[in-house]
């Protein structure tokens, strides 16, 4: 265990201490950091120590509750020699570090239900904005877009100065009707009629259609559009015939 903190400034310290550090041993004298994260020192003068069997978890002192699943780690607390507190988990279940690991794992596996369950182990009202943004991205990956939306929306309300959360709330917002009184588009409807009428003869080919008229066909999208110019401005449909 290092005797001097490698964390040079307060900002860096705050960031680093938001991580969990797995420490083996039941006392500061025994403890050695086993995680790959930065070494904390001097131990544990600025941290809160939690005992989980033979392991200690060291966490940032002013945010201990936010990173613990209180429902599963409620234990005794006692002051340590330096005035910090230690929580003694009775059941040895999850911590915030574990909860985040579960979030990551569920997201990576596309496990929607597992992700939602893991979310319940974190008090999101206490999470800093960057952590919320990280969770939003994981929720997207886990294919739980409504969870991502709620996290982004709640986070944007809580941290109005956080540009990325604001952007996330905007991008993930429910769809909004812009116009519902626009005239019909007979030209585009004619494209559908052409496709239905020509499925057999052009099946598998790429075609460019405008107002129900075939402009050209090709074997690939790139070949088809190479000389067509601005598809959007000309309202040309470039599609494979299914």
């Amino acid at each position: 265990m290092a005797n001097e903190s490698p964390l040079a400034d307060a900002e860096t310290t705050a960031v680093r201490f938001k991580e969990m550090f797995l420490v083996v041993g039941r006392s500061p004298e025994e403890a050695s950091v086993t995680s790959a994260g930065p070494v904390i020192g001097p131990f544990p003068t600025t941290a809160t120590m939690y005992d989980m069997g033979s392991m200690l978890w060291v966490v940032q002192p002013d945010t201990p509750l936010e990173i613990w699943d209180e429902s599963s780690t409620t234990g005794d607390t006692a002051p340590l020699q330096n005035g910090t507190t230690a929580g003694f988990a009775r059941n040895g279940r999850s911590s915030l570090g574990t909860a985040w690991a579960r979030l990551e794992s569920a997201a990576g596996a596309g496990d929607e239900r597992g992700f939602v369950e893991a979310c319940k182990n974190i008090d999101w009202t206490l999470q800093p904005p960057d952590a919320l943004m990280r969770a939003v991205r994981l929720a997207i990956t886990a294919n739980v877009p409504l969870v991502a939306r709620k996290m982004a929306t709640d986070g944007a309300l809580r941290y109005p100065e956080h540009a990325e959360l604001q952007k996330a709330a905007r991008v993930l917002a429910p769809p909004r009707v812009i116009r519902s009184d626009l005239p019909p588009e007979p030209g585009l409807a004619a494209n559908v009629a052409w496709l239905k009428a020509n499925t057999e003869s052009y099946g598998g080919r790429w075609v460019a259609l405008k107002d129900g008229i075939l402009l050209t066909d090709a074997s690939s999208f790139e070949e088809l559009t190479a000389d067509l110019g601005d598809l959007r401005a000309q309202r040309i449909l470039a599609t494979k015939v299914f």
């Binding site: 993930l172 769809p175 909004r176 009184d181 005239p183 409807a189």
Partner: peptide, 22 residues
């Protein structure tokens, strides 16, 4: 990446509709 774009439903009958979607 996730973006917002305008999604138009061009009506063959009735009125066309445009929504802003993710």
């Amino acid at each position: 990446g996730l973006h917002r774009l305008a999604l138009g439903f061009p009506a063959g009958q009735g009125e066309s509709l445009t929504v802003e979607a993710t």
